[in-house]
Design a protein around this nucleic acid. Structure first.
Lengths: 134, 134
DNA sequence: GTCGGGTTAAGGAGAAGTGTTTAAGTTTTA
DNA sequence: TAAAACTTAAACACTTCTCCTTAACCCGAC
């Protein structure tokens, strides 16, 4: 049972950083290079981001599979597909067309390429009309 | 930028579980053994626990190092040491003796052995009097 | 007792993460 | 502009995680 996500090294750096030390100062204290402090800090922050995202996912766990957006799809027609599927299930999506596209852009930027879907995307919907992409 | 902590497999299992399916049913759907579903679910839950703990740590990041409890210390004298160090820093700890022991028990059960400290513990304190163990 | 649901242990292959160094960049600030 | 602070990339050794299988075990209900 390993406690949290952060290693001792990462916690050390975050704590010193919070006290206002520079990376070089921390490097001297913990005995390594400032470049290394930078990467340790970076991966610590990344870990925190992932922790947040994980809990975020848990909040949307009650979502059900809605549909799949195949790769190559035009981003502008995606919302229509989602609205159609959602209304077939009697749920009103809580976003409009632009809102959905923004939500998607924020959620899975790496699956998109300009106006098109690069990698296929799974869409989930819960009873509140909240959507979740994967 | 790898999204969250949970793998696709883990999310799949959690989602199906939330829908009320048994491990065997999920095993059939995703094409593996129920033993495997069990371990996937278990590590998913463990990941969520770690995510929570990570954010918990972030909340206490502004804590400063207070003192170290050496291994072999009697649990009943630990609070006194903490109160002493804290008041030397002009901070009032927001727990009483029993509260501190409970906090410690919850936070690092594996560092304790009956009435004694098995592995040394770092104590951190924040300006609000919140304590954090490591 | 048997069956269904769940858990555990051991082991293995492959993937991912960590801490490091060195060396080259970029940004901020005095 | 020069110095200080920070970021990035590539590479390497190591460790941990993930998924998987097989085979066994626990427990509550019928």
């Amino acid at each position: 049972m390993k406690e949290g996500l952060l290693t001792d090294r990462q916690k050390e750096v975050l704590r010193h950083r919070r006290q206002g030390l520079t990376q070089q100062q921390i490097a001297d204290i913990i005995g390594t290079s400032k470049a290394n402090v930078c990467t340790i800090e970076k991966s610590a922050i990344e870990n925190v981001r992932r922790a947040r995202e994980t809990l975020q996912f848990m909040y949307t766990l009650d979502a059900r599979f809605l549909c799949e957006i195949s790769s190559g799809a035009d981003l502008l027609v995606v919302p229509d597909q989602i609205f159609r599927e959602a209304s077939a299930r009697g749920v009103k999506v809580r976003y409009d067309t632009i809102g959905l596209i923004n939500r998607l852009r924020e959620s899975l930027p790496e699956h998109l390429q300009a106006r098109f879907v690069k990698d296929e995307i799974q869409v989930y919907l819960n009873d509140d009309g909240e959507v979740y992409f994967e």
